[in-house]
Design a protein around this nucleic acid. Structure first.
Length: 317
DNA sequence: TACCAGGATGTTG
DNA sequence: CAACATCATGGT
């Protein structure tokens, strides 16, 4: 009789432990009315070489470095976002950080209603908004990541850009192994700052591209530049501080401002993808000039970055 | 082979 | 300030 109670107690303990193991690390994140998980996945799966997140069975896997420790979590959708954390320690602090990260990443806080109202001024953009209803600007909550990614993407096609990023991440990034799968996170600024131009060349980086990446990495590693520092500043001051770094031009600055700093009006007007999308969507005989784009974009005032994102999305077909 | 790709910098008029 | 030249690297 005594041993039966012990067995029973053990069983109960076991299931209680399982319960907490599973449910203590399940997080629910409310989504706004204008939110489409389908469009989110469509964007996130746009390139097979993407190595900083992973999508399988409508679940998005992401590794995040929190206090120098990698944490893996998976996001799925079921009347709101469900986040499960696959990590040993998941304290309240980490949960808070992850919630904030996902909210920023999928841009859950943006006032999409107002964007859609503004889009009514432009029949072409209005059409895209109906087609991609609920698409939010999938961002990069980490400014360093968006700067590195946009420098990689300068003047080369996206496919090649993804393959350069893959090499950078796999060779210098942080690695986490979970159930025989390998998950990566971006190299730290310190790690990249410690490299030389020659270290990049075996991976097909041009010398200038490597130098630009070093410039940004060193600025971050040495504390001359940080996301917190910039986030407080007004639009033009942020842009100027970014452009002051050799290798960051207007396109890169605006790209990062829209993707990482929630400057929804940031407008990477030099973007070739935008040019192609606008040509197609407006049925123009040729790609628009920068001047023409500035003029067209007045209709999107306040939301030029969001409009750009929708035009990019139209390139997926 | 010439031209293109989610540009940036430097020089010239 | 705007137009041009040059830089690099791979893909088509």
């Amino acid at each position: 009789m005594f041993s039966k109670i012990r067995v029973l107690r053990t069983i109960i303990y076991f299931y209680v432990a399982i319960y907490f193991k599973i449910y203590a690390s399940m997080i629910h994140l409310e989504t706004p009315t204008e939110f489409s998980f389908e469009q989110t996945l469509r964007f996130l799966t746009r390139n097979q070489k993407e190595c900083l997140h992973f999508v399988k069975n409508d679940q998005v896997f992401k590794t995040l470095s929190i206090n120098n420790a990698l944490v893996l979590f998976a996001i799925s959708f079921d009347s709101g976002l469900q986040i499960s954390i696959h990590s040993e320690q998941t304290d309240e602090k980490n949960i808070k950080i992850i919630k904030k990260y996902v909210s920023d990443w999928f841009d859950l806080e943006a006032d999409l209603k107002t964007f859609y109202e503004v889009a009514q001024n432009d029949s072409v953009l209005k059409n895209l908004c109906q087609k991609f209803y609920g698409l939010r600007m999938i961002g990069m909550p980490d400014l360093f990541e968006s700067l590195i990614w946009s420098i990689i993407g300068q003047q080369i096609n996206l496919n090649f850009a993804y393959s350069l990023k893959e090499k950078l991440v796999q060779n210098f990034g942080q690695k986490l192994i979970f159930k025989d799968d390998v998950f990566y996170a971006l190299p730290t600024p310190e790690k990249l700052a410690s490299l030389n131009i020659e270290d990049f060349q075996p991976f097909q980086f041009s010398k200038s591209k490597a130098q630009y990446i070093l410039n940004v990495s060193r600025a971050f590693a040495e504390g001359h530049l940080s996301q917190e520092m910039l986030a407080k500043l007004p639009f033009e001051e942020i842009r100027q501080k970014l452009v002051a770094i050799k290798g960051i031009g207007n396109w890169t600055a605006n790209y990062s401002m829209m993707k990482s700093l929630k400057n929804y009006d940031a407008f990477p007007v030099e973007d070739v993808g935008l040019h192609n999308a606008v040509k197609t969507q407006y049925n123009l005989p040729a790609k628009p000039s920068i001047k023409e784009l500035h003029s067209m974009s007045e209709k999107w005032a306040g939301w030029r970055g969001y409009a750009t994102f929708y035009f990019w999305h139209s390139l997926l077909g």
